[in-house]
Computed example of a mutant assay.
Amino acid sequence: MPHIVVEYTDNLSSHINIKGLLEQINDAVMAEKDVFPIGGIRSRAYELMDYHVADGKENDAFVHLNLKIGKGRSDEEKKRVCERLFQVLQEYFSEYASEHYLALSLELNEFQHQTYKANNIHKRFS
């Protein structure tokens, strides 16, 4: 953990470098060294082909980031990470948003129950 899932509308595809955005997202999470182990960070993106935004009369776009984490972080840590990630989104899309309609959102999901996982990537960072 954490897992970061980015959903974005397909009308953004020609305006963004999604792999570059995911790299910036991972860098932002890694900057919180004491909150998440580097080996557990996983980000991915889904381009949405089927969606309807507002009244559907404009070429509106949206980006939604879902941050999924396990239990154990303080409210301050969660707030700091969410604010850092939302800042990445706002900065990344600032130029686009200055000329187009765009909605950005971020959601934090903290698992309340046991998760099942195996990950030997942590060995590289220990």
Rank of each mutant, 00 (worst) to 15 (best):
S14H: 07
D10I: 10
F111H: 03
D10Q: 14
L48H: 01
L65H: 09
V81S: 11
S74T: 15
S14Y: 01
N11Q: 00
P37R: 02
G40N: 09
K19N: 15
D34W: 02
E47R: 15
R124I: 13
D75F: 07
E110M: 11
G20H: 00
D55N: 08
L102G: 02
V6R: 07
S74Y: 11
G39V: 12
C82V: 10
D10P: 04
L89Y: 08
K33H: 14
Y51T: 04
V29D: 00
S94T: 12
V63C: 03
F36H: 13
D34K: 02
E47V: 12
Y96P: 13
E77Q: 13
H3S: 10
L108I: 06
R124G: 11
D27Y: 08
S105K: 02
R73N: 07
V81P: 10
S105Q: 02
M1C: 01
V53A: 03
Y96R: 07
K71D: 06
L12Y: 01
S126I: 09
I16G: 03
I4K: 00
L21T: 00
I16D: 02
Q90W: 01
H100V: 08
L67D: 05
G72Q: 05
Y116L: 01
D55C: 03
K57N: 08
I4L: 15
L22C: 07
S13Y: 11
E83K: 08
F111E: 07
E83I: 07
V81T: 14
A97L: 06
Q114L: 15
G20D: 02
A97W: 07
Q87P: 04
I121K: 14
G39E: 06
N109H: 11
L21F: 00
I41K: 07
V6D: 02
V29H: 02
R73F: 10
F111M: 09
N120V: 14
V53C: 02
S94M: 12
K78A: 11
N119K: 08
L48C: 10
K79Q: 06
M1S: 05
Y101W: 10
K19E: 13
F36I: 09
E23R: 05
H3T: 11
F62H: 04
C82R: 08
